[in-house]
Amino acid sequence: MVVFEKTKGLTDNQLHYCPGCTHGVIHRLVAETLEELGVTGKTIGIASVGCSVFSYNYFNCDMIQAAHGRAPAVATGAKRANPDNVVFTYQGDGDLAAIGTAETVHSAARGENITVIFVNNAIYGMTGGQMAPTTLPNQVTQTSPYGRDVTVVGYPVKVCEMLSQIDGATYLERVAVNNVKNIRKAKQAIKKAFQNQIEGKGFSLVEVLSTCPTNWGLTPKAALKWLDENMETYYPLGVYKDKYKEEK
């Protein structure tokens, strides 16, 4: 009996991510969810700009590649055009929380019936490790070489906390993929975010704390630990909003 095998929600293309980068785990969780919900045939994924720009090569569904930060706007158009399709975006922190902040906030405010997968690894990966809107205070990056100085460049953006103030948002949860237990919880959250859409419940966003061993300058193993010790303290895991649970 097969206990675990590669989901058909992923294509056979090999991921381009660096060794140990947990983008791959998150891709798999999304793809497994699509397969388990039986919706790969009617799903439209929106790829963003950043490390996940090539996600259209991996998710085994129709895909649209959006401009930097604009995935929620493209998703809005796609979902409005095809309300019976499942529409999701897969975005990194630079894409979603810097250049695309307006699109993120307003798609939530409109309560667009879409699913947003937000990968927060506190750095710009694709361009080689620059400071992200979610880079932690004092964290060293290529563009904060002396550590993020909050007196000069300000504080990280806590996306789930921010969006939890928006009436239009339905479901917001922050999860992590740095150990097996967290990965299982992340899967549940992602599944719920898609189920919400299928049930017409509106805007769901899952923020996934992820690693970037290459640009953090750590081994894959040490990166898991760094996430645990540094990111989880600044970005506490948990459900930040669940509209339908509140109404029960």
Partner: peptide, 17 residues
């Protein structure tokens, strides 16, 4: 839309469909 930038990208989403 929240901006012209968002509007044209919504257009792109519909056009893609």
């Amino acid at each position: 839309a929240e901006s012209e930038v968002a509007a044209i990208n919504m257009v792109l989403g519909v056009a893609a469909c």
